[in-house]
Design a protein around this nucleic acid. Structure first.
Lengths: 291, 291
DNA sequence: AAACTTACCTGACTAAAGTCAGGAAAAATA
DNA sequence: TATTTTTCCTGACTTTAGTCAGGTAAGTTT
């Protein structure tokens, strides 16, 4: 008989557990227990504060202390005291530690690459993985402020434009839309927020300062793999809070009726529909909110 | 910057590892080490041969022996000797063991259900999981003979008809197609094979015996989540081998030009295109192969 | 300045997992 | 029938992981 949904999830779990088990085995092949390998990995090329490693790997202070000592004895890391706070210690990789770190990276990367290479539709596989990783890590999505000209922000905006182009019947050409200068979405006039789900850019929103007595919300976008997790709502509430802190009292935004989920969201968040307030060719719906 | 493919896979691995770690923690909550819980799980309601458990969990004989003993001491299992081969032993759950097994099942199932419940598009999530599980478990797909009237075979056929209906421009109505009686796809006249990827029906093919001096290949189907893994080729080669063993020398099949990947496969497998040999309304391409 | 908190270390444990050698009984093979 | 192989057991380990109770030095708070 066909499998029911719960069985399908458990089949997935089995497949993935087997896969990670194999990777762990290959990690053990480097002659070091998994715990030590994990610590080496957590330190990484940039080095890391010991307290940070402890929080990240959820290790007991005694256990981590000993693992660090064993890595130090192997000549893979150096642990020195932090200059600012002499209680704290900071671990960095030695050149040899760097090589060892790269070897572990290579094991993981090769396995990932092999999986990609042998799959007929790598893009489909990756999309499926993004979807699942977002679903599992929903509460671990963090929202960070970024420069609107940073590569990550740029990636979000590209994805946003690409989506508009497919969803608006008239298509979408960013060059024809009213330009929102990066300057206006950067402190002190505005803000640009990006949602990162364990490093993957999964959404964004911009707060654009104007000289017209209100600020605008621009470029709200959520990646397909992260939809339905309430991320748009989180982004909006963050940006509204920030506007409030900046002393802004009126917010406006425009959107298009071809994006019904967006309009629905604004209504749920108690935005009021208002008349057209600009002559941008793409939007046909306009909202305002007092914060 | 946007993540590259390998980073996306590794992000997925991290998310999934965290998730399974949480499940393991909840397993520990039942006051038994993970090793013992895993053995209990491997035994299952139907019981299992000890050598089988050992191979499945890849455990040392001494270790497994002790884990079995501890479960026995807890009153959860009985280990008795196999009647046919007195060296071997067979483990079964006691009534109490059954309850404990179900408790572990409930933990897993509840977690799976919670994941489903909180996801906005459960069907999408499940499809993504099927895809990944198939990609990871590609060499673990097994092909088994089944009765063409069994529920699993029925599920495959339903999926096959549904797909034909969407892909053929004229649609597809199984009632109008030439009936292949189950009798003809069952030994001794024929055969029906199903591909199971860790329990999930992922493909099928039928060998239909006729009285016309040849046998027919029917209903070759591969689930979307398992495409590109070479499964169709495996199914075809199995069924051709079986036909050869049955003393059949000529095989025929029909297909439709709206399914180009099927026709391509037959050509690669050295089938020759022949003239129409039946008056079924749906096919427009006909092949033959001597085995 | 005293009291508290934080970050880290050490020593002394325990539990779990895993390895290895040897051995008995049963089955398969020569 | 003799030999080899398979299946499982036991005892004696080691390694890894993890816990807990001090203890010291450096910051922070009162």
């Amino acid at each position: 008989m066909p499998l029911n949904p719960v069985s399908r999830i458990r089949r997935f779990n089995r497949a993935v557990t087997t896969e990670t088990g194999v990777l762990d085995q290959s990690f053990l092949g480097r002659g070091r227990p998994l715990g030590a390998a994990r610590v080496l990995n957590a330190i990484g090329p940039a080095g890391r504060a010991v307290s940070d490693i402890r929080a990240f790997l959820d290790l007991d202070t005694g256990l981590l202390s000993r693992l660090l000592r064993s890595l130090e004895d192997e000549g893979l890391i150096d642990v020195a005291e932090d200059r600012k706070d002499k209680r704290r210690r900071f671990a960095v990789l030695t050149p040899e530690g760097h090589r060892e770190y790269e070897a572990y990276e290579a094991l993981s990367n090769d396995r990932a690459q092999a999986l990609l290479d042998r799959h007929p539709h790598p893009e489909q596989l990756l999309a499926a993985m993004d979807l699942i990783a977002s679903a599992l890590g929903r509460d671990r999505i963090e929202i960070v402020e970024m420069d609107p000209d940073s590569p990550t922000a740029f990636h979000c905006l590209e994805s946003y434009y690409a989506e508009l182009a497919t969803r608006l019947s008239a298509g979408y050409d960013p060059a024809k839309a009213a330009r929102a200068g990066s300057e206006d979405m950067r402190p002190p006039r505005g803000q640009f927020l990006v949602a990162l789900s364990d490093g993957l850019p999964s959404g964004c929103v911009g707060l654009k300062g104007t000289d017209k007595g209100y600020a605008e919300i621009k470029r709200l976008w959520v990646a397909p793999s992260a939809r339905g997790l309430g991320l748009a709502k989180r982004l909006m509430s963050e940006v509204e809070n920030h506007a409030r802190e900046m002393g802004i009292t009126t917010l406006r935004l425009d959107t298009n009726s071809a994006l019904p989920e967006a309009a629905g969201l604004y209504q749920r968040l108690e935005w009021s529909e208002i008349d057209r307030f600009n002559d941008d060719p793409y939007p046909d719906l306009f909202f305002e909110k007092r914060v």
